[in-house]
Simulated assay, not measured.
Amino acid sequence: MRPVRLEAGATASAPALLLRPWRPEDAAGVAEAYQDPVLRRWAAVTVRDEADAQAWVRVQSDGWESGERLAFAVLEARPDGGEGRLAGHVVLKTPHEEQPEVGYWTAAHARGRGVAPRALNTLTDWAFTAFPGATRLRLLHQVDNPASCRVAEKTGYGFDAVLPAAPPEFPHDGHLHVRVATA
């Protein structure tokens, strides 16, 4: 799969965003982002230091190679069109299936500025265009994560069901949100 670069527009309170595949030089930004206890609480993977961050970035790159996990670094766009600070992450998992899954996180400094909804909308629009066989996209989060519920609702992912916990990978009940492709 050939990596792509996507752009999400600016808002009155936040710069435009650039979405591009992760690069090895992004590891320091990932390690910094994972110092945030809020991100660590919801993240499925533990990143303790730059070595862990380098391994995490390699997993994202391997996903592009296999075509099974298309992950994007979400960066603030500079006025000259260059790449600014790391603001988050979005991912499309199993894109060739009928119901792929999306995921995301936002760096602490970027929260409250519409980064997650703008990045997720951009990823969603791209996914439905790039993978016409995908008719529904799924978004999952823990039931006690109201911020993810708000992002899902803002981006048109309607609540579908409560999923029971499946320890050890999913120790708590979850919400399933779904967005359906429009014709």
Rank of each mutant, 00 (worst) to 15 (best):
S13P: 04
S13W: 10
A14N: 10
A14G: 13
A14M: 11
A16P: 14
L17P: 04
L17K: 00
L17S: 05
L18H: 09
L19N: 08
L19H: 01
L19I: 07
L19P: 07
R20V: 03
R20D: 02
R20C: 02
P21M: 02
P21R: 08
W22N: 01
W22F: 14
R23Y: 10
P24H: 00
P24I: 03
P24E: 10
P24V: 03
E25P: 09
E25K: 03
E25A: 15
D26F: 06
D26K: 04
D26M: 05
D26V: 05
A27D: 01
A27W: 02
A27G: 05
A28K: 12
A28V: 15
A28W: 11
G29S: 11
V30H: 06
V30L: 12
V30M: 11
V30E: 09
A33I: 02
A33S: 06
A33F: 04
A33Y: 00
Y34C: 12
Y34N: 07
Q35H: 09
Q35F: 03
P37D: 02
P37N: 01
P37H: 03
P37M: 04
P37E: 04
P37R: 00
P37C: 00
V38S: 10
L39Y: 00
L39I: 12
L39M: 09
L39P: 09
R40N: 06
R40I: 06
R40Q: 12
R40H: 08
R40T: 10
R40P: 13
R40F: 07
R41L: 10
R41H: 14
R41E: 13
W42R: 03
W42I: 01
W42A: 06
W42L: 07
W42F: 15
A43M: 08
A44R: 15
A44W: 11
A44Y: 10
A44G: 12
A44H: 13
V45D: 15
V45K: 14
V45Q: 15
V45T: 15
T46F: 11
T46A: 15
V47D: 07
V47S: 05
V47K: 02
R48P: 03
R48A: 13
R48Y: 05
D49Y: 08
E50A: 05
E50K: 01
A51I: 13
A51K: 13
A51H: 14
A51D: 11
D52Q: 04
D52W: 05
D52I: 01
D52C: 00
A53V: 00
A53L: 01
A53F: 02
A55R: 15
A55F: 09
A55L: 13
W56H: 13
W56Y: 14
V57L: 02
R58A: 14
R58Y: 04
R58G: 11
R58K: 11
V59W: 12
V59P: 08
V59E: 12
Q60N: 09
Q60F: 00
Q60V: 02
